[in-house]
């Protein structure tokens, strides 16, 4: 089934079903014995096509990820991994006008339901914004050992700030250097290069004391500077006090 723009492009909200950290109900992890790299020939082809698709549609990796996130939640959950890649590829190629839905469907089996075409709405992605050249690499606002809080951001669009860390306090563990900012890069709103840090969160800060965790267990996650705010020494003491009440 072709994911059509009418279903996908409008639903661009960040708080999508792809942001799975901390969800329950998916059951046990079941490894497959002697698992092949691909489970079907179309998976092979889809995997290999992805890079070409990104080139053909002139999209970056963040836009590709965001396209996957724009798959309607029920469909996302019902699709396998490479089916999601396929849906994203079709979506981006059609949105960028590289191929039309009609062309894609005409190439497919004659049994394709024409209603899917009728439902489609042509929706081009935003025009690219050119970067200012010659800008200096940004300085790091934080350094190792700094206490920080993940901001409670809910931007309308792509982000790599998962819900489970928003509002939580952690410590800068490493500064990985400067990286392109996905939240803007996914929307052609500039690369906004900035420092990205490994931020360490106590498992109990994230999941509460009742969690199946020892007091030493931690989650380390890589967060861009714009996702973080400093915790001043004073406010730290206060917030700990508050939490103990």
């Amino acid at each position: 089934m072709l994911v059509v723009a009418s279903e996908s492009a409008i639903i661009a909200t960040v708080n999508g079903v792809h942001d799975m950290g901390g969800m329950d109900g998916f059951g046990a992890v079941v490894p497959e014995k002697n698992e092949p790299v691909f489970h079907a020939d179309w998976e092979r082809r889809m995997y290999a096509l992805a890079t070409s698709v990104m080139g053909a549609a002139q999209v970056n990796i963040d836009e590709f990820r965001h396209a996957i996130e724009r798959i309607p939640p029920a469909r996302y959950l019902a699709s396998s991994y490479y089916e999601r890649w396929l849906a994203a590829a079709e979506m981006l190629l059609v949105e960028r006008g590289v191929v039309t839905r009609e062309e894609l469907l005409a190439k497919q089996d004659a049994s394709i339901d024409p209603a899917w075409i009728a439902n489609a709405v042509a929706n081009r992605g935003p025009a690219p914004i050119k970067e200012k050249s010659g800008s200096k690499p940004p300085r790091a606002r934080f350094s190792k050992g700094d206490r920080v809080r993940a901001r409670n951001l809910n931007p309308a669009g792509h982000t790599r700030l998962p819900r489970y860390v928003r509002g939580k306090a952690g410590v800068i563990a490493r500064d990985w250097g400067v990286f392109v900012f996905p939240d803007t890069n996914a929307h052609h709103a500039g690369t906004k290069p900035q420092h990205c840090y490994s931020v360490s969160f106590d498992a109990r800060e994230l999941w509460g004391k009742s969690a199946n965790a020892s007091s030493r267990d931690r989650v380390l996650i890589d967060l861009w500077e714009d996702y973080l705010e400093p915790i001043a020494a004073k406010s730290t003491a206060r917030s700990i006090k508050k939490r103990k009440k």
């Binding site: 020939d41 082809r45 096509l49 698709v53 053909a56 396929l86 469907l105 190439k107 089996d109």
Partner: peptide, 15 residues
């Protein structure tokens, strides 16, 4: 998905 991927590859090759 098999039919769709085939279509995608054929179309991109054609273009």
């Amino acid at each position: 998905p098999a039919a769709r991927v085939k279509a995608l590859e054929a179309l991109l090759t054609e273009k």
